[in-house]
Design a binder for these strands. Structure first.
Lengths: 146, 146
DNA sequence: TTGCATGCAAATTTTTTGCAGCCAG
DNA sequence: CTGGCTGCAAAAAATTTGCATGCAA
């Protein structure tokens, strides 16, 4: 287990370096928090889950922005006023969100390659797509019974 | 032209009533602003485009939330800290967004019915999807040359 | 008439910024 | 070393709330 953790750490460091950033304890810990999370977290939630609330809020914001711009984490839209984040290496995985109780379920297989190809084929101003967002909103079984 | 405008007004009023809301001048005007917009707008932009900046900011927020919850407008995630909105009746239409210069291009044909069916088939907690978000992020031709 | 909508002002929440000191590379 | 990171404190931006008044249905 410890071995695995170390490998993951190494992997994170490489990723940070490849995006031209330094592998500081703060950044590694934010990544670790998101690694353990079972759902996307907002900035406040990330901050609270850090060991002893250790990082300054300004730092958390700066880290989040750097990681997002570097592509290590992904911003999710839950129709809230502020953003949520998750690791972007959980391959091609998206969410079903209940607009009533906010329940979140993952789903995979959005087959977006064909969507991207189609979109780019018809586009005059774009030739590459580096990321995408896809969320489905509805009512979960519990809420739809009410 | 005036005839057409009146028809649209009537349509809007019906939509508002069907979501259990009153058809006030403010709400109709917000819808009209979004109707004329060539791209999704944030709350501040909507407020500025109202005749003479007529509505209070608190009111604009309350209107936006009501229209979104009622399904008349759609919230778009541009990876910003705050949300953007557009009319939801522009059928099944999404965006290509340049992460560098924020250029926005529309694209259609996301064929999401098959995605939704697939997701629901594998879901234990959901049986219906009422809305979806799909945005593609990348670099536009101009920015990718830099 | 009557309860939903709005304006106004204030509070709260969320995000950003300047600057000095620190540490990963 | 040294330039990127961070903490601290303060400011700015975005969103919400309470209450009195007004208007759509």
């Amino acid at each position: 287990m410890i071995q695995i953790m170390k490998k993951e750490q190494q992997e994170r460091k490489k990723q940070l370096h490849s995006m031209g950033s330094r592998a500081t304890p703060g950044r590694l810990e934010v990544l670790s928090v998101l690694e353990k999370a079972d759902r996307p977290l907002n900035v406040e939630e990330i901050k609270k889950r850090l060991k002893g609330d250790s990082l300054d809020q300004a730092t958390v914001y700066r880290i989040i922005n750097a990681l997002r711009d570097g592509g290590l984490i992904r911003q999710i839209d839950f129709l809230k006023t502020h953003a949520y984040f998750e690791l972007s290496d959980k391959h091609d995985h998206h969410h079903l969100i209940c607009v009533q109780c906010q329940k979140i379920e993952d789903f995979t297989g959005c087959n977006f390659q064909s969507i991207v190809q189609k979109a780019l084929k018809n586009s005059k101003q774009f030739k590459t797509v580096t990321q995408h967002s896809l969320e489905l909103f509805g009512l979960c079984n519990t809420c739809s019974k009410k």
